[in-house]
């Protein structure tokens, strides 16, 4: 299994291929529906330094606030990524992201964006909230908490050995397209719908 430190450079990301297991360590940012909307509405210089060369994690975590005001992640598995399809490629380009972590894969616009900007889609295991929360070692800071609420806020976190699979790479490869095509052919055969 490959290990990858964040932030990272374009060359490292371009070396990753569909099907690679990777363990991520370093700093990344979380963001889902409200966050993506907010990120493209205008350039948010306050969060930009946390995004350049790193990845955005599609997650709506359960977070515990401690008495000293610090936070920790209680449960943190990926959320469905396809909802960010209209925005993702632009967010990658504008903020210099090197990747996305989510689940379920994304569409053609994002796939083209990954190729153009040198980024990949990392698939985390959906529902594995406890395993993944254990990899989150520290919550550094948070943006838009009051406005968006806990699940939708942008959390800047430190992770260690966060397990993911590359399912869309920077060369146009997508495991999701492959599996969809093969399963469609099988479905058509089972239902007698083949041409």
């Amino acid at each position: 299994m490959a290990r990858l430190s964040l932030p990272c450079d374009e060359q490292t990301i371009r070396s990753l291929k569909v099907g690679d297991f990777v363990e991520l360590s370093g700093r990344l940012i979380t963001g889902r529906d409200a966050a993506h909307h907010w990120l493209i509405e205008q350039y948010r210089s306050e969060v930009a330094p946390y995004m350049a060369g790193s990845v955005i994690y599609h997650v709506g975590p359960v977070v515990k606030r401690h008495e000293d005001g610090s936070y920790s992640f209680v449960a943190a598995g990926p959320t469905t990524s396809i909802r960010e399809e209209p925005y993702q490629a632009d967010v990658i380009g504008r903020y210099g992201l090197r990747g996305v972590i989510g689940k379920g894969g994304m569409g053609p616009k994002t796939l083209a964006g990954l190729k153009e900007h040198g980024a990949v889609y990392f698939h985390a295991i959906g529902g594995a909230a406890q395993v993944l929360a254990e990899s989150v070692k520290k919550v550094e800071t948070v943006f838009q908490l009051a406005e968006f609420g806990v699940p939708e806020a942008l959390w800047v976190i430190q992770v260690e050995d966060f397990p993911v699979v590359v399912t869309m790479d920077s060369h146009g490869g997508s495991l999701h397209t492959q599996v969809d095509g093969a399963s469609k052919a099988k479905l058509d055969q089972l239902l007698g719908l083949s041409a």
Binding site: P61, V62, V74, A75, G77, T79, A128, Q130, A133
Partner: peptide
């Protein structure tokens, strides 16, 4: 592994409850 962790810690199996 996640199912075991959640059971032992009595914490949510998935963050989307």
């Amino acid at each position: 592994a996640n199912v075991d962790l959640a059971r032992d810690k009595w914490q949510p199996i998935c963050q989307d409850t």
